[in-house]
Amino acid sequence: MKRILIVDDSSTARMFIRRCIEISARQETKFIEACNGLEALEEIKSLNPDVVFSDYTMPKMNGMELLEKIKASQKHKGILVFIISSAGNPALESKLLKNGAHAVLKKPISPTSLMPFVDNIFGENKNAD
């Protein structure tokens, strides 16, 4: 079973992202939610998700900071991280990818926009544990 962490300060956005993933899912999935990067780190430490979908702009800790923390961790650096952004910024996107984001998706996401990544998301467990 894949464990997917969804991070966004909007409960509506989290619900919508979860629905899109559920439609694309090829296996049973456990969803975990957090409303900012700080909360996400706590969930990562305790529940060790396989995949993280994170909004970029959030209070307390944004998506970039969260990504850097995940990739700096020996234990968690294998987690697949998708960053979701509402605003376009090629330089930022490039930096996110360079820092280890698997992909940067633009809102609104849809099951169609997730299709290219389904194999990555529901493939073999990439996490260290």
């Binding site: 605003a87 376009g88 910024n89 930022l92 633009k106 609104p108």
Partner: peptide, 17 residues
């Protein structure tokens, strides 16, 4: 807002909201 700025500015432009 994100969609509007992307269309208004064109692809590849920087926008901050």
């Amino acid at each position: 807002a994100g969609q509007f700025m992307g269309l208004h500015l064109g692809e590849g432009q920087i926008c901050e909201l």
